[in-house]
Nucleic acid binder design. Sequence first.
DNA 1: GTTATCCGTGCAAACGTTTGTATTTTTGCC
DNA 2: GGCAAAAATACAAACGTTTGCACGGATAAC
Lengths: 347, 347
Amino acid sequence: MAKHRITITDIAKEMGVTPSTVSRALAGNERVSLKTRERVIAVAKDMGYQPNVLASSLRSGRSDTIGMIVPRINRHFFSNVISGVEAILNPAGFNLLICQSHERVEDERKAIHSLLSNRVGGIIISHSVETKSFNHYNEVLAEDIPLVQFDRVTDEIGGPRIVNDNFLGGMRSTRHLIKNGCKRIAHFAGSLHVNVYKERFDGYKYALEKAGIVFDSSLVVDNCILQDSGSQAVEILLRSEKIDGVFAASDFSALGAIKKLKEMKVVIPGEVKVTGFANEPFSDLVDPALSSVEQNAFEMGTQIARLIMENIGKESIPDEEIHVPVRLIVRESSLSGNSEIRIKKDF
Amino acid sequence: MAKHRITITDIAKEMGVTPSTVSRALAGNERVSLKTRERVIAVAKDMGYQPNVLASSLRSGRSDTIGMIVPRINRHFFSNVISGVEAILNPAGFNLLICQSHERVEDERKAIHSLLSNRVGGIIISHSVETKSFNHYNEVLAEDIPLVQFDRVTDEIGGPRIVNDNFLGGMRSTRHLIKNGCKRIAHFAGSLHVNVYKERFDGYKYALEKAGIVFDSSLVVDNCILQDSGSQAVEILLRSEKIDGVFAASDFSALGAIKKLKEMKVVIPGEVKVTGFANEPFSDLVDPALSSVEQNAFEMGTQIARLIMENIGKESIPDEEIHVPVRLIVRESSLSGNSEIRIKKDF
DNA sequence: GTTATCCGTGCAAACGTTTGTATTTTTGCC
DNA sequence: GGCAAAAATACAAACGTTTGCACGGATAAC
């Protein structure tokens, strides 16, 4: 029916003023008298006016939409970061346009283009695991719209990066296993060209070194972040090696390991202790409950949002890396009965 | 640096033609010669042209952005529906603007406004649990942009509704429990003003009736979809009632029940059998693994996307309710050792 | 060679805002 | 009451497209 949407021109006509006055009134501009401002707002509400943000951003060159690209939204970590971002952005009048890269660099490239076409005011990104070169970001940087990287980041792109303290998480997990008596700790790593996995690995090595344990590369399984690969890895490892601990860079591979170990009648945590990473919702449901590193996803999101809002309209964006603290959550899968007291120190 | 974004006018000047020709050429319009079309596309690519969708939708009145409102994105079901929607929409050149209502009707209202302001071409919605009146949708209907409801729907709003076969899910779960020997089956329901919970409840009642079991309202716990309420409910019930089965409308309350029952040393499935709903990722991780009703979220998403694309630009949108089949997944939590064969029929 | 037809392109207005500048109205002051 | 200054509003162009219509030139028909 009412195909015609109310515009400021309609309001202007209705009131016998010009669109400019209406526009300024709605924007709260002091140049129009308080009386008129109030009248305009009343009439606008009365007529059911919905501002056209397309026209607005076209004219003003500004946009209240922020683009966000994540590998997948159905991952606990990412969906919580998104919630954190929205918690800050929405009340401030911004919208979030969310894209998934599905871990594919091609989709990531497409998403970038789509966001640029939508003239977003800023872009928030966590790279796909496939992404190794970053020239598709040149356009973003050339347009100088703020680009904030989080979690999966690279220093090949300027601007702020906000990451978990993955090194600390890896170090603490490993140290915790050592304190609980592990001597030969395997590490299920992710792709080591991705910062988060590299840093978890570095933390692992560092903890070993600090404890005087010689690093043994045959205990490291690369590209092992899925449940299946965790199962396979632990099975293969146990054939040739004697291990008494597993620090997995992902809760999923840790889960796979636990399942396989149980199947093999290896006692957890008695014979092998296991820790994971990300504190997925399932980690306290498995038996034994899985120790894991909690990432403060929501808080990370709020920081990202604040960062991008700060940088909108700024000429140059500072290069900085912000670390969000992580927390080791100790559960049954990594406890040796006799050291519970000492572990408390790990929190 | 290059603050100036390339426009079709730039391309036109460069080539010595007019913007209209460029516009038509890029749109693949037959009215411009193939030769020119090819040249335009080449030059556009060469100059790094990014179409301005704001200007485009402003002028054309069409928008390639679809808005979607869900209670929360960090729920397995919803994030998978979203993925399904995107899987169809993105290749077709549409973008998805996702909003969360956080189960609050006020946020839902705000999201609607925001989407309308963004002049989306269509809206996909699953209502918040709080939403009981629907007049905030009048504006959407008045603008006649397609509105597709899914999962949590109401027939107070016209247009297509796409839902799981919740009745069937409830019926099958209950029947399965009955076939496995349960005589007194409790039901943990959600808010009964929400269609999905109402229908699961109806399915439960229907199955009881068909089996000649008298419905007993004291075995129904209202508003019981969270883990904690599941724990409490089972504890309270067992004090006064003798039950041997629980059909929970949510995996979370089923989980709570399982945890509490184990704590109370009640044997599952020996003394009490439990089934849930939604087949959350954790349901096969708990011990005993939880029987649940799988909702085909991704496929539902693809259907929603097709539906909304079909209806864009249409005058009137047909009122229809589409049912997506569900599947009962039987796991340990509801099996009586001696009837495994008969259960197969439930699939 | 004239006229009709068609093809390719140009012209200009429009979408709904915002915003710099101009104009009118009000106010204060002598 | 006249005048300048200040306040309030109007005017008009612009943002980057799309699109109905007009136009010129080539081809075809007679």
